[in-house]
Simulated scan of single mutants.
Amino acid sequence: MQPGKRNLITDVAGLRVGHAADAGVKTGATVLVGDAPFTAGVHVMGGAPGTRETDLLAPDKTVQQADALVLSGGSAFGLDAASGVADALRAAGRGFAVGDQVVPIVPAAILFDLINGGDKDWAENPYKQLGREALAAAGADFALGSVGAGTGALTADLKGGLGSASLRIGRHTVGALVAVNALGRVTVGDGPCFWAAPFEMGGEFGGRGIAKSFDVGALPPVKGGDARNTTIAIVATDAALSQAQATRLAVAAHDGMARAIFPSHTPMDGDLVFAAATGAVPLESEADLLMLGHGAALCLSRAIARGVFEASAAAGDVMPTYRDKFG
Rank of each mutant, 00 (worst) to 15 (best):
K212F: 00
V98M: 14
L272K: 00
A315M: 12
A13V: 06
L219D: 08
I232C: 00
A136V: 07
A246I: 06
R6Y: 10
E200K: 09
A123W: 00
H265V: 03
D324Q: 15
V102E: 11
P3V: 07
L135M: 02
G95T: 06
A246L: 08
L298G: 09
A227W: 03
L162H: 11
W122S: 06
A66R: 12
G206D: 13
I234Y: 02
A66W: 07
A218N: 15
D22P: 05
A287Y: 05
I304S: 11
R185E: 08
H43M: 12
K159C: 11
T247P: 00
A138E: 06
G184R: 07
E124G: 02
D100V: 03
V174W: 14
A20H: 03
L292N: 09
W122L: 10
G161Q: 08
A108I: 08
G203A: 11
Y322F: 15
A244D: 04
S83H: 13
A88I: 09
A296P: 07
L298E: 13
I261L: 04
A109I: 01
I210E: 14
Q2W: 05
A240V: 04
L167Q: 11
L15P: 12
G256E: 14
G307P: 05
A40V: 05
V174P: 06
A258V: 11
I261R: 04
V44A: 00
T230L: 06
I261S: 09
A109L: 03
K5D: 14
L114V: 09
A91I: 00
L111R: 06
M319Q: 15
A97C: 07
A136W: 01
A86K: 01
I105P: 05
T230F: 08
I232M: 06
V251Q: 14
G131Y: 05
G145D: 14
W195Q: 11
L177A: 06
